[in-house]
Amino acid sequence: MQKIDWLTGRAAPYRRPIWDVLGNRFDFQIRLLENSRQFHCRPGNRPDDWYEFGLRGADTAFVPTKRLQRGEENYYLALRSPVRRGVDGVILGGWESPAYWQALAQLKTSRRPVRSVGFYESTLASQGHKNGPIAAARRWYFRNLDAVVVPGEASAEAVAAMGVDDHRIFVGFNPVDVDWIARESTRSPLRGRGHRFIYIGQLVPRKAPLALIQAFAHCRDEADTLTIVGKGELARAVNAEIDRLGLSETVELFPTVSYQDVPALLARHDTLVLPSLTEVWGLVVNEALAAGLHVVVSRNAGVAPSVADMDGVHLCEPEREAIAQAMAASRASWAGPVRTPAILAFTPQRFADVFVRALNQS
């Protein structure tokens, strides 16, 4: 049986289904650059159970690291070897941290061939550095991998732009556990006459929560409601904007919600709105579609081109007027939850197969 490591920062719960599939195929271990103590010391905008939900039952090991935080980002320096001895392949879940470069150097100097597979989610729109030394380092890193797995065509375009050959790019569809979400999202009875909008995400500038509130004020019918779930640096500004627009009776705020409660929360709403200025993917869109909701999603989100043709999807520019128009269009076309969401075909099993091909194709 092949011995495969997946090196990543945190035990993200939405990755667990993929890890479970790979764990059934390989001698597979998740190598985490951040332990539970480090996470709880500064979890950022994640709920308390987020990390543990991703760990349950998984074969994991913690790589001792020095962690540096800058804004939303975490960077890790490995204090010992990041991957196991004798591995046949390693999936590198990032590139920005020194630990990933340390792992790549370990693989390249190994006496036996070890397959290096990168996992890259950013798009040309969401990349932070277009030129200069950081962009050059990123190009070098990905050109020196044996394969790169991407979650959609937008990410594939970004990897190709780095000069990675097409035959080394493996394109999948970024999944969540759609079966679990569909099963757990039991619909609640309709509450009144209004349309129920929801936003789940960080309250940070790139997510455009203030534009969302302004758009809701602009397009709402009298009985419509908006639920905002998240925390971040704009929390006070969000509250102030709600008060300024006189929306305190129709906008409900929650700082966080446990990951296992997300399906039930989605099921109490009709349309998810993700109006981000930049968004690597936007997995909450997958979750909302699996729960039968409509979604209003910014064209700047990596998920947008992959779901554009699905029922209930309304794309928009990340501007107040465009967001409001898309929200109104979603409300006008709402006829109850989508009965057989197309997103259900894009399972973790299907995406895991892409990693298997990338690990084995020479």
Rank of each mutant, 00 (worst) to 15 (best):
Q29W: 04
S362N: 12
V171F: 09
S110C: 11
G57L: 09
I213C: 02
Q127L: 15
D165N: 09
I198Q: 01
Q38K: 04
G302S: 00
R350G: 03
L77P: 02
L33H: 03
A291Y: 07
A290V: 10
Q349A: 15
F119I: 06
S248Q: 13
E222I: 10
E121N: 08
V150F: 08
R31D: 04
R320S: 08
D179R: 13
I4M: 03
G292S: 12
A11F: 03
A147C: 07
N35P: 07
Q214C: 03
R244T: 08
R31M: 13
S185Y: 03
K66Y: 15
W140H: 11
S188L: 14
R193E: 13
V238Q: 08
L212S: 01
R320T: 15
W140F: 13
R138W: 06
G152P: 08
I242D: 01
P43F: 10
L245T: 05
D166P: 06
F39R: 00
A103R: 01
E317S: 15
E73L: 09
G54M: 07
G9S: 13
L277E: 13
P341D: 03
T256A: 13
E287I: 05
A147N: 06
P337V: 12
A264S: 15
S116G: 04
W101T: 08
Y259S: 11
V238H: 11
L79T: 10
P255V: 07
S188F: 12
A154C: 05
D179V: 14
Y14R: 05
M310Q: 13
D27Q: 11
H294V: 10
T60L: 09
G312Y: 03
D20P: 00
P341Q: 01
V117F: 01
A137C: 14
D59K: 14
E72L: 12
S330Q: 07
